[in-house]
């Protein structure tokens, strides 16, 4: 996935300014920066969720396998099946069981045979490291789970339809340290199969989990490079100031 001079607007205000970035497959890419720097808006532009916001529109290009996702004739629905997303707060569907939550994205393509569905649900829950905790209550309520379990359920729901890219928008912001650690371990596991782009406020999280890091400030992409380089020898003064905690 890559972007080319991507600009995301709210009405006349440019929240993201002409960002060009490449996200090689099967790596974890972290987006960091102070609040309001445009990193979440940038993320939401990648699966065209930004245009759902009031006054939201974009210019520039977002390429998925070389094809512009904003091009004419592109189905937003198909795109979002290829680019999954997990949000800051866990969002299990409250009226659906644990099983039906994981299967929610699969039902859209038409009915799958029961056995196949069972298999995908189990595999998705295993990959989200949740299977052992919920295998005896798949028909039970999804909102009875703890916050950390709910977030892993959302992760299972996102990976079940086998997207190519997973967008994580501060996925651990509402979790306790244990929940956070489990999600971080999963991110590391899941990059074998998916390209992962993670927005985070937590510098240690970016340093621990990602292969590349991009620093955003005031809607502009300030610096992009291998995570190790960004955190040890940043080229830009602002990046250094931010990662050493002098502002942000």
């Amino acid at each position: 996935m890559e972007t080319s001079t991507l600009t995301a607007m709210y009405g006349k205000f440019a929240a993201v300014k002409a960002v060009t970035l490449q996200f090689p497959a099967n790596q974890v890419h972290a987006l960091i920066g102070p609040s309001g720097c445009g990193k979440s808006t940038f993320l939401r532009s990648l699966n065209r969720m930004h245009e759902m916001s009031i006054g939201g529109w974009v210019t520039g290009r977002v390429l998925l396998d070389g094809e512009d996702v904003y091009g004419p004739g592109v189905s937003v629905i198909q795109l979002r099946r290829r680019v999954g997303m997990v949000f800051q707060r866990p969002t299990p569907f409250p009226t659906k069981s644990i099983y039906d939550n994981v299967a929610a994205g699969l039902m859209l393509e038409g009915k799958l045979p029961r056995a196949e569905l069972d298999e995908i649900v189990e595999r998705s829950l295993r990959r989200a490291a949740l299977w052992d905790e919920v295998k005896d209550r798949l028909k039970g309520s999804a909102i009875a789970l703890s916050g950390g379990q709910q977030q892993r359920l959302c992760l299972a729901r996102t990976i079940a339809p086998e997207p190519e890219v997973i967008l994580l928008d501060e996925p651990t912001a509402s979790l306790d340290p244990q929940g956070t650690q489990r999600i971080e371990e999963l991110v590391f596991e899941l990059k074998k199969d998916f390209t992962i782009i993670i927005v985070t406020h937590n510098m240690q999280q970016a340093a621990r989990t990602s292969d590349t890091t991009t620093f955003f400030y005031l809607g502009t992409m300030v610096e992009h490079g291998p995570t190790k380089q960004i955190f040890t020898t940043p080229q830009n003064e602002q990046t250094e100031a931010y990662i050493t905690g002098r502002f942000g």
Partner: peptide, 15 residues
Amino acid sequence: VPNSLREAALALGYA
């Protein structure tokens, strides 16, 4: 109904 639920469904490819 929280808007986050609506977004979650849309992000999953719901029309």
